[in-house]
């Protein structure tokens, strides 16, 4: 786990070990690892002189941070009111079936993470599915398969 410490150390140096940069530091670590490793959080707390519990309070407060390892592709299904009435839950259950994971979990091969969100603010194009920042408007159950296939692992040709 020394590799984590080294990476985090360089992130901290980039932010001059400033307490006020805590969120920015966590964002950098999240970008690097796709989640916040425990060692990284402990090291950040120690280096900044911030109680560990406060670092964790921040890390658990924001949805952008995850304490569990996330997959390479983040699938977010909107379940806000507008998307809900247009069939958001059905699309979610289709993803659950296709990926064989429940919301909040990651596939075993660490390829997909499935998450739900309460509203993305673009209700007009609902039901919305977001994969890695790409929006899929007016999603239907039929479109789920093509979305999954688009991001599925590229098969190595033999």
């Amino acid at each position: 786990m020394d590799a984590v410490i080294t990476t985090v150390q360089s992130t901290l140096t980039r932010h001059q070990n400033e307490k006020r940069a805590l969120i920015a530091i966590l964002q950098d670590i999240q970008a690097e690892y796709n989640f916040l490793p425990r060692e990284a959080l402990e090291f950040v707390a120690k280096s900044l002189g911030v109680p560990l519990i406060d670092v964790i309070g921040v890390a658990t407060f924001y949805r952008a941070f995850s304490l569990k390892p996330r997959g390479r592709h983040l699938v977010t299904v909107c379940l806000g009111t507008a998307c809900h009435v247009r069939g958001g839950p059905k699309i979610l259950s289709e993803f659950v079936k296709k990926l064989a994971i429940s919301p909040g979990d990651t596939t075993k091969d660490k390829h997909f993470t499935l998450e739900t969100v309460a509203c993305l603010g673009c209700c007009a194009i609902g039901p919305v599915v977001v994969v890695d920042g790409n929006y899929y408007a007016h999603t239907t159950i039929r479109k789920v398969d093509s979305i999954v296939r688009k991001y599925a692992k590229k098969r190595v040709k033999k």
């Binding site: 109680p51 560990l52 519990i53 406060d54 964790i56 309070g57 658990t60 407060f61």
Partner: peptide, 9 residues
Amino acid sequence: GRAIGFQNR
């Protein structure tokens, strides 16, 4: 102490 705190939201 700062052993416990609020988590999540």
